[in-house]
Amino acid sequence: MTTLNISNDLLGAIGGVPRPETDVVVDARDVNKFFGRLHVLKDVSIQVKRQETVVIIGPSGSGKTTFIRCINHLEKIQGGRIFVNGHLIGYRETPAGRGLPIVGGLPIVKRLSVVGRRRKGAEGVTKLVEDREKNVAAQRQEIGMVFQRFNLFPHMTAIENIIEAPIHVRGTSKDEAMVMGRALLERVGLVAKENVYPNQLSGGQQQRIAIARALAMKPALMLFDEPTSALDPEMIGEVLEVMKELAREGMTMIVVSHEMGFAREVANRVVMMDEGVVVEEGTPDQVFSVPSQERTKTFLSKIL
């Protein structure tokens, strides 16, 4: 059984009151992505507000995983823009027509062609260039990600996995990181596994450690890429429980998942994607009970 702690002020803030849906955390506009010639994302636009949980569903190959990987720039995009907390992710704008931008003394050759097409003499036209690796890394600190295959570091214990990034990226002191790490372990119900290596843990336990590891960076946004797809059925529940708790605490989350029960219970919005296009978007009730699109109906009938 997992034990979960919610701080009192958070409970007070949540307590039945509808979440304040104010500022936009994720603002993806007309995102286009190609793998070679394959057009995997076609003008995908999604907004996620603070403390919102958005579940993306859709058949495999629909681009949902690719899309959330674009949000923390694990994938490059060839068109559109993605903003997280108002910051353009992975790219920076430079005035067009000024020649190649100079980064670190060397010209960057790669350029985004789809967005901000370079027009001769056009004033105010900008083009996007891929941002410096260091800046992208800094942006990723604010975006937690949980992977389908956990990707825990096998050469580190559970607690070492959790404190690695706070210490080496954020510069937190080891003592402070340990305190935080233990608190996170408690939160995911795995205090006893502090000094255990990942390969001694079950899939569900590994995934909970992976969630704790992402949370250790105190991200403003959490991305979940099919977090329960690689788990044995009896372990899915414990991971979903942690995620539900997180959503209730007000974490902003985007979840790619086939867990319709989870989507119904937790999601503020469900986004249905197919063939790189957002087919339908709405509250869980709307999408699951009265889907407006034929494609959604077919998909739901197959999996429910």
């Binding site: 690796e133 260091k134 890394a137 942006q139 975006i143 295959r149 990226v169």
Partner: peptide, 17 residues
């Protein structure tokens, strides 16, 4: 496993780190 690099990147680690 490339997943290791991705996990490290997603935690904000630079290439060198």
């Amino acid at each position: 496993d490339p997943g290791q690099t991705e996990a490290a990147k997603s935690l904000g680690m630079t290439y060198g780190l």
